[in-house]
């Protein structure tokens, strides 16, 4: 709806309407969340490849790959069941879905972090006594890669779990 009253404001408002952004924003605010399945798994796979590349070639290529997976992950967050739309508050079901999603996401990320720390610890110990030499983070980029990998893991696992907790909407539910 365009503004009425001040001619300059009216023209600016009309110009904004022509861009289509207000319509898009309205659609985004009222649309139901998208249930993601394949995309979070794909982004997780990309982040895993990134971490593997960072381990094999610690020049920062792996870190960049992980960051490439992180950008679309934030978009999935906004469009999926964990994204807030408009100014409307979440109802009890939406809160329950978000809590469930983040619970699963945090469990997965925490579990991976614990296993990773254990592997690093065993790796260092093994290297000290000359048994084996498991990769451990050395540079700041290594730590950044691990941090963003865990963030990717939490976010994508949360989106997957939350999407799984939402049944498919009926055709006539878009009233």
């Amino acid at each position: 709806m365009t503004y009425k009253g001040d001619p300059i404001a009216e023209k600016l408002d009309h110009l904004a309407e022509l861009t289509g952004i207000p319509r898009l924003q309205q659609r985004f605010n009222t649309a139901n969340p998208i249930r993601f399945r394949v995309l979070p798994l794909t982004l997780l796979a990309i982040a895993t490849v990134g971490l593997a590349v960072q381990i094999v070639r610690p020049m920062g290529f792996g870190y960049v790959i992980i960051l490439l997976a992180w950008s679309p992950t934030t978009l999935l967050f906004a469009l999926g069941p964990l994204g807030r739309r408009g100014s409307r508050k979440w109802d009890e079901r939406e809160v329950a879905v978000a809590r469930h999603g983040h619970f699963i996401g945090l469990i997965v990320a925490f579990g991976t972090a614990v296993l990773g720390a254990l592997a690093f610890g065993l790796g260092k110990t093994g290297a000290m006594i000359g048994l084996w030499d498991i990769w451990t983070p050395r540079s700041g980029l290594d730590w950044l890669a691990i941090t963003f990998f865990l963030l990717n893991l939490e976010a994508n696992a949360a989106v997957l779990a939350a999407s799984n907790a939402i049944p498919k909407p009926l055709e006539d539910e878009e009233e």
Binding site: W90, D91, P169
Partner: peptide
């Protein structure tokens, strides 16, 4: 009344009314 009208009256998302009607969600 529509799902949206009922949802507005009880303060939930219209999708929640749909899930309730289908038995996919147990309300508080």
């Amino acid at each position: 009344i529509s799902r949206k009208a009922l949802a507005d009256k009880v303060g939930v998302n219209p999708q929640t009314i749909g899930f309730l009607e289908r038995g996919d969600y147990n309300p508080s």
